[in-house]
Measured scan of single mutants.
Amino acid sequence: MKVIFLKDVKGKGKKGEIKNVADGYARNFLFKQGLAIEATPANLKELE
């Protein structure tokens, strides 16, 4: 799953980066902790 990092995550990505991560990792950790959001077309447009 592609995500947009909202904060730096050690060993995974830095704020503003778009990366592929495991679905479970994204849903169970990154999204719940507010560290990333899903890289949907709408979210990508907001990032620009």
Rank of each mutant, 00 (worst) to 15 (best):
L30F: 04
G34T: 03
L47S: 08
K32N: 08
G24A: 14
M1D: 04
A39G: 05
E38Q: 10
E38Y: 05
P41N: 09
M1L: 14
L44G: 04
E46N: 11
Q33F: 15
Q33N: 15
L6N: 01
N20L: 15
F29Q: 08
E48G: 15
I18Y: 03
D8I: 03
K7I: 10
L44E: 05
E17L: 03
P41R: 08
N20T: 15
L35I: 06
R27S: 08
M1P: 04
I4E: 02
G24V: 12
K45M: 12
K19Y: 07
G11V: 02
Y25E: 09
V3M: 03
K10W: 15
D23I: 15
L30Y: 04
I37L: 10
K12L: 15
N20P: 07
E46A: 14
N20E: 15
Y25V: 07
E46M: 13
K7G: 05
I4S: 01
L30T: 00
K32R: 10
L30P: 01
Y25D: 07
D8Q: 03
I37H: 03
N20G: 08
V21I: 09
A42R: 09
I37M: 12
N28T: 08
E38P: 12
L47I: 12
A36M: 00
K12W: 15
A42K: 12
A42H: 12
L47N: 09
G34I: 03
K12I: 15
L44H: 06
K12G: 14
G16Q: 02
M1T: 12
I18R: 03
K45I: 12
D8Y: 07
V21G: 00
E17D: 10
A26T: 09
A36I: 08
I37V: 13
V9T: 03
I18P: 00
F31S: 02
A36L: 01
K19L: 08
L35P: 00
K45W: 09
L6V: 09
R27G: 03
L44F: 08
D23E: 15
F29H: 11
R27W: 11
L47P: 05
K10G: 08
M1S: 05
G11R: 05
M1Q: 05
Q33S: 07
E46S: 12
E48Y: 13
G34S: 06
A22S: 14
V9I: 08
K7L: 10
G24L: 12
E46D: 13
